[in-house]
Simulated scan of single mutants.
Amino acid sequence: MSTKHAVVTGAGSGVGRAAALALLGGGWSVALAGRRKDALEETIGLAGEAASRALAIPTDVGDPKAVNALFDRIKAEWGRLDFLFNNAGGNVPAGPIEDLAYEDWARVVQVNLTGSFLCAQAAFRLMKNQSPQGGRIVNNGSISAHVPRPDSVAYTSTKHAITGLTKVLALDGRPFDIVSGQIDIGNAGTPMTARMQKGVKQANGEMKVEPVFDVAHVGSTILMMANLPLDANIQFVTIAAAKMPWIARG
């Protein structure tokens, strides 16, 4: 096949935008999924001539009907799917566990964990039944899949759970040439990490400015993972600002 086909969720900004642009630049056709059509189209507008291989598909990944519609569109447009980057995610302001409203907890779980499950489930069905069979799923785990920040019970819990999802997909996909890996990102330079420049709370309670790195390097890492043959897999990869203090968070 001269062109392979990918879905990137949360493609309207940040890590998802960088991944979508890297894949488009690498010759892939890419369906960009996210809640805001204007943001998706803005990403496509940055792709230059590769924009002709992009589809903007507004999608709430926490909504099963919306996810099914996304993958039905992929099947109708392309007939197959070779790569899914499960990137969409959300968070709530940091705060003590006793003050976290159930509604805020549920919203983070619905997007970060349930959304990743729903997209992986739909991708798995498509990859299992297409010919040639197989494909690759990469989940965005985050440094928080390893160690938490203070006051982050909802986000950290979902990101630890993503690691379990990654492992199950990798195991259950073996008979069908469906491989699964995880990218754990620390302080990529996106709107989400702009607060790092002003100082964020550390484990000992102090506020500290943290370094960030160019999010384009995340995109190139995703492209490398996507381009691997299906008999090889990067199971887990961590990419972070070199001087990020996560190794010593405790």
Rank of each mutant, 00 (worst) to 15 (best):
K4F: 09
H5W: 13
G10L: 09
A11I: 13
S13D: 15
V15E: 08
A20R: 03
L21V: 05
W28K: 09
G34T: 04
A39N: 07
E42H: 04
T43A: 14
S52G: 05
A54C: 14
D60T: 08
D63M: 07
D63C: 07
P64S: 06
K65S: 11
A66I: 04
D72M: 00
R73Y: 10
L84C: 03
A88V: 12
G90L: 04
G95N: 08
D99H: 07
Y102F: 15
E103S: 14
V111H: 00
V111P: 01
N112W: 09
G115M: 14
L118V: 06
A120Y: 06
M127N: 01
K128P: 02
Q130Y: 05
G134I: 03
R136D: 04
I137M: 04
N140C: 11
S144G: 02
H146L: 15
R149M: 12
V153N: 11
K159L: 08
A161N: 13
V168T: 10
A170L: 07
I178Q: 01
I178R: 00
V179P: 00
D184T: 00
N187V: 09
A188V: 14
P191W: 12
Q197H: 12
V200C: 01
V200D: 03
G205Q: 14
M207K: 11
K208P: 00
D214Q: 08
L230R: 03
Q235T: 07
A241M: 09
A241H: 05
A241K: 10
A242S: 15
M244K: 04
